[in-house]
Nucleic acid binder design. Structure first.
Lengths: 228, 228
DNA sequence: AGAGAAGGTGACCGCATGGTCAAGTTGAGT
DNA sequence: ACTCAACTTGACCATGCGGTCACCTTCTCT
């Protein structure tokens, strides 16, 4: 059983990290987080072995929250509104959290907790999508994976103006959602991604330290004889 | 008139930087670029006062290329196919270039060359969109600015699987494009962004040095009494 | 109250980055 | 062939990062 001040500090750190990550994205320094939590830098590493670990903890929680909401929405009577609300929540999470999208792509795919949460999320998304599909309110060729990936789409469309026009992502959510309706479905020449694609992508994702990871990967291809 | 070797080196640097930026994104080090170009680091700064300057040069060229294509497409007979090809080109550019999306948001909004090119791009996009709108092939409430912003959407939707499923962005392009059709248009509760929004966002964008820019901006809001 | 362990601390390390500059090299005009 | 400005070079600087560790403080159990 940990000491009282340790528990307190741990919570402060999680709160501080959560806020700083949301405000400034993945590159916030540990020093900043420590300062905000009112502890020394060393304390951060007492509680979380690496920065990646800290981020994974927070990111896992966020995804878990979304999963919980999705679970509720399965009870919702109207499948269309359920799906729309699910997408809204997923997008809103990212729109309010600078670290989220980056984290989803880069970090913590390797982290087991995040992996688990993400898989649950994919299942929920598929369930909600399936209900909407069966009800005939969205096109037949759209899958749960598509829905999760489209979270990114709406946020990133609005991202260049994100701070200037705060609710803009909503515009693109609606635009994209209209594209999901059966009425206007044209054939799509590319198949939906599979669960296997996601696991394969997870293997490629190396971790937080992109520079290091990069230089390691680089030895393979872009070397030129004369240089260096 | 510059010396012959200077001209040669400048071109090598642009080529190298272009390739490295595409492959590794905005955070490639100057050292890497210099190595690839086969020159010393100092030489880079002989030709481009700052890293931001180098990136702006390249990024400006890319946008200009897209503008040129857009200009050709205005002659195309079918407005729908013209718009679709324009979007495809814009997305493809980003999908093949890791630096592009980041650059669009972060850097070089401040750079006059890039600003100019971006404004031209917005005009072209508006022209192509207008033609498609008049022809009744896309919904009335979509603007050229929307189209440019949606470049990001398709790429970013596919981004988490980008390296694993290379052509995936195409799927989301088609999905999004279907959402642009008049047949399935529902009312959108958020207005399209204006040119003014873009200029306002440009003012906020500070430059390459995000860390510095951040800490400057940070003094304003997220300070907490006890901390630091 | 006292003791011992759990936890906090901040100076410190190694490393990488963007950028500078005095000294050396080289292309081009005569 | 000679000269000199234009250009290149790489050691160097300041800064910021994630992470470590010997030392000190503080909680908790008796």
């Amino acid at each position: 059983m940990p000491r009282a001040d340790a528990t307190r500090n741990r919570q402060s750190l999680l709160d501080a990290a959560s806020a700083e990550l949301a405000a400034h994205g993945l590159e916030v320094s540990i020093a900043r987080i420590a300062a905000r939590a009112g502890v020394a830098k060393g304390t951060v590493f007492n509680h979380f072995p690496t920065k990646e670990d800290l981020v994974a903890e927070i990111f896992g929680d966020r995804v878990a929250g979304l999963v919980a909401l999705g679970e509720q929405l399965r009870e919702e009577v109207d499948p269309e509104s359920a799906l729309l609300r699910f997408m809204t929540a997923g997008i809103e999470l990212q729109a309010n959290d600078r670290s989220f999208c980056e984290a989803a792509t880069a970090i913590s795919r390797a982290d087991p907790r995040v992996r688990a949460a993400s898989e649950r999320l994919a299942q929920i998304a598929e369930a909600l999508t399936g209900r909407a599909r069966d009800a005939g309110v969205i096109r037949a060729d759209v899958t749960g994976h598509d829905i999760v990936l489209l979270f990114n789409a709406a946020v990133q469309a609005a991202a260049p103006l994100g701070d200037t026009v705060p609710g803009l992502w909503r515009r693109y959510l609606y635009l994209i959602f209209d594209g999901l309706r059966p009425e206007c479905a044209r054939e799509i020449p590319v198949a939906a991604p599979t669960t296997g694609d996601f696991t394969a992508a997870a293997r490629n994702a190396s971790g937080l330290s992109q520079p290091k990871a990069r230089s390691r990967a680089d030895h393979a291809s872009p070397q030129r004889q004369g240089a260096v």
